[in-house]
Nucleic acid binder design. Structure first.
Lengths: 149, 149
DNA sequence: GCTTCCGTTGACGTAAGCGTCAACTCACAA
DNA sequence: TTGTGAGTTGACGCTTACGTCAACGGAAGC
């Protein structure tokens, strides 16, 4: 089975070797050694991928570590199992909330962009002064929804 | 029009006054003053909501400030406008990527939870030892997809 | 007038997540 | 033999986003 060096992985994932070693210090990955050099197996590479995705969705390294550890639950007691299940359920709710936040942000940004494009369309072709009092604001949805100034 | 004190807002949004003052230091909000006390208008409150949602979707305060500033573009040149539009488009792509990451993470977590629940079901009612070799791992999707150890 | 809140301004502290040296080892090619 | 290149271990530095005092200010109730 194939293995990887630290620089191979750092190139593949677009991170620095320093970062990878840091994840090891924090016990998120445990590569083997050949001499003093680290050797990464497919398992380590997969964990790295999970770590980076975890980061992209906003988990801290500690949280990611906890989740990775939860994946490794074996011959656990039923109590341990239901604890783990609860933990996963919590994470799931968090992500669902976050997805909703993202939907809202996307709506907002798209709306703002659309309005900007209208402005641009008015200004660019004919240098028409546009429907603008000169000091009006470009307003976002919830800016209007919540603010009444 | 109604206004708010700093503690009202900190209670409403579940953050500390210190945080709110920090956002002011970083120029994300500009409340007015009455004497030495800060007074928040609906506009400030709305901005605060946007800030917090921005944080929840993973933006840094600097990024959020930039976006809030972009909302305030007025009588800008066409070049400024298209710059702003480009920025918004970038944010939109980022969020779409992130939403995809979240979908994947959700799949993974739900899959893991489902498998855990099977284990729990096997163990709890009849204390049946479950289909487990005693040191097997509970495996996640991409753990299998990427790792072949 | 005194206390009790609620607010304010520094100032320093802290945790996370690496970046950035310095100094060293080891395999391997010239 | 002497680089050269890739890897290693400290160790300190840095940024972000506040937390946590300390010391002070004004209004309100008694």
């Amino acid at each position: 089975m194939r293995t990887w060096t630290i620089s191979e992985l750092s190139n593949e994932f677009g991170i620095t070797p320093r970062a990878i070693r840091f994840y090891e210090d924090e016990e998120l990955i445990q590569p083997t050694r050949v001499g003093q050099s680290r050797v990464y197996a497919a398992r380590d590479r997969a964990r790295l991928a999970l770590i980076l995705r975890g980061k992209r969705v906003g988990f801290s390294l500690d949280e990611i570590k906890e989740m990775l550890d939860l994946y490794n639950v074996k011959d656990g007691q039923a109590t341990q199992l239901s604890y783990t299940i609860k933990k996963f359920s919590q994470r799931i709710s968090m992500l669902e909330q976050q997805r909703a936040d993202i939907e809202h942000s996307l709506e907002e940004l798209r709306g703002a962009r659309a309005r900007l494009e209208v402005l641009l369309g008015e200004k660019q072709p004919h240098r028409k002064p546009a429907n603008d009092d000169g000091h009006g604001r470009l307003i976002g949805y919830s800016m209007n929804a919540a603010a009444r100034d």
